[in-house]
Design a binder for these strands. Structure first.
Lengths: 147, 147
DNA sequence: CCCCTAACGTTAGACGGCTAATCATTAGCC
DNA sequence: GGCTAATGATTAGCCGTCTAACGTTAGGGG
């Protein structure tokens, strides 16, 4: 009964647990890796931009930014031209995590897909993407109808 | 780069979002559905038993139990024979949610796998299970070595 | 028989996540 | 050009989750 649900939940949990364990070695919390990676890609993004990129709400980014600022990983800089905007910039300490972080995430990916052929990996990615697409379509549908 | 990670994260998020939306109609929060389902299966389980069954820590269940008690969904009953144990029992209000809950979860499962053949569904479940197995093996390995 | 340890539940506090409400600044319209 | 609407960030408060510390009850060993 609802085997699919259980499988999905278990996968989420185990993935989360592994990621948390790896991140702890870098003194990072779950999710902060995504912020660091996004800023490494393009520094100075605003909370709103990051939220959109990471598919998360703005308040979530704001809270994380506050903690990461306290931890010395990022800095808040107000935009000169538009005083409403806040630019989040990596500090040197934050930048120093970028490469070990990328290496760790890549290692996780490899370890988790051990025993899967390339074909199976591609298949898994494809199937999950389609399910995600279904989920988003469903959310959009409900959103419109206000149901 | 780390495409697998992104796919997995996106899948988790979308699934979570859909589940949250459905649960809201029943005035339930994410995760509470699992507690209700577990108690429907076998009423009077202890926080520790539930935690093990749901692959979650005991404090998580305790907090949820407190809120669900306040919401009138479950009751705390101390075990007669062993005063250390607490038995969580569904109230009538809680029990009334069991069936609509099961129906909702089944509906989610069907909507999310729309467009997938039976073979593909089986394949997805199999692949995710194997990845989850890898993740758990990795966690166990780290746990032993204390690394 | 009493103490000591093991087994449980609970509390405390941190974190990511969300929704709703608030505040500041910019831009647009009459 | 000044009032209003839209755009951003922030705050407040809730929930699930985790780890660490605490209190209590059973049970076992000397």
């Amino acid at each position: 009964m609802t085997e699919f649900t259980e499988t999905y939940t278990a996968a989420s949990k185990s993935f989360r647990a592994v990621t948390t364990a790896v991140l702890r070695r870098l003194d990072l919390h779950l999710g902060q890796n995504l912020v660091v990676a996004a800023l490494a890609e393009r520094d100075g993004q605003t909370p709103g931009e990051l939220a959109a990129a990471l598919d998360v709400t703005t308040p979530t980014i704001v809270k994380m930014a506050t903690r990461m600022t306290a931890a010395g990983l990022v800095m808040r800089v107000r935009d000169d031209k538009d005083q409403r905007l806040v630019r989040l910039r990596l500090t040197d300490a934050g930048r120093s995590l970028v490469e070990p972080l990328a290496a760790s995430m890549k290692e996780i990916e490899e370890r988790l897909t051990t025993g899967l052929t390339d074909t199976e990996r591609a298949s898994l990615t494809d199937l999950m993407t389609r399910v995600t697409g279904n989920a988003r379509a469903l959310l959009a549908e409900w959103d419109e109808s206000g149901d």
